[in-house]
Amino acid sequence: MPLFAIICDDRPGGQEIRAANRAAHLDYLRDTGVVVLAGPFQDDAGGMTGSLLVLDVADRAAAETWAAGDPYARAGLFASVAIRPWKKVVG
């Protein structure tokens, strides 16, 4: 199956939304079984400002459906979400 990178930027002031939904988000990542890697973007002070996820799913439609179901997305955390096909070369 192809890989897709999901690149998300938090909306301004989204720290409370992120904190309130973090456990559900992490459960979703684990329970869906399609996440290859995931982690937050950070500012210079170490605060979380967005997310990078790589999914192993059937197609773009599956990646879009997965992204829409993420508790962070459902809670309105993200100002923007980009989904791009991604090819692993190293690592």
Rank of each mutant, 00 (worst) to 15 (best):
V89W: 03
K88W: 09
A45S: 15
Y28M: 02
D59R: 05
D31H: 01
A79K: 14
R74H: 04
E64S: 05
W66I: 05
F78Q: 05
D56K: 12
V34P: 03
D70F: 05
D9K: 06
P12L: 06
D70A: 03
A45C: 08
D43P: 01
L55K: 08
C8R: 12
F78V: 06
W86D: 02
L3K: 12
R30A: 09
A5G: 13
L37Q: 09
A82I: 05
G14Y: 06
W86E: 00
R11D: 06
L77D: 09
G13D: 14
I83G: 06
A63V: 00
K87N: 10
T32E: 04
A58H: 14
G33R: 10
V35Y: 04
A20W: 03
R18C: 00
W66D: 11
L77E: 04
D44F: 02
D27W: 00
A75T: 09
V54P: 01
V90W: 14
V36A: 08
V90M: 10
D56L: 00
M48V: 11
A67M: 07
R84G: 06
H25Y: 03
G33F: 13
A38H: 10
T65I: 07
A38I: 12
D56G: 02
W86P: 00
Q42S: 11
A62E: 15
L52W: 07
D59I: 02
T32Q: 11
V35A: 08
G14D: 03
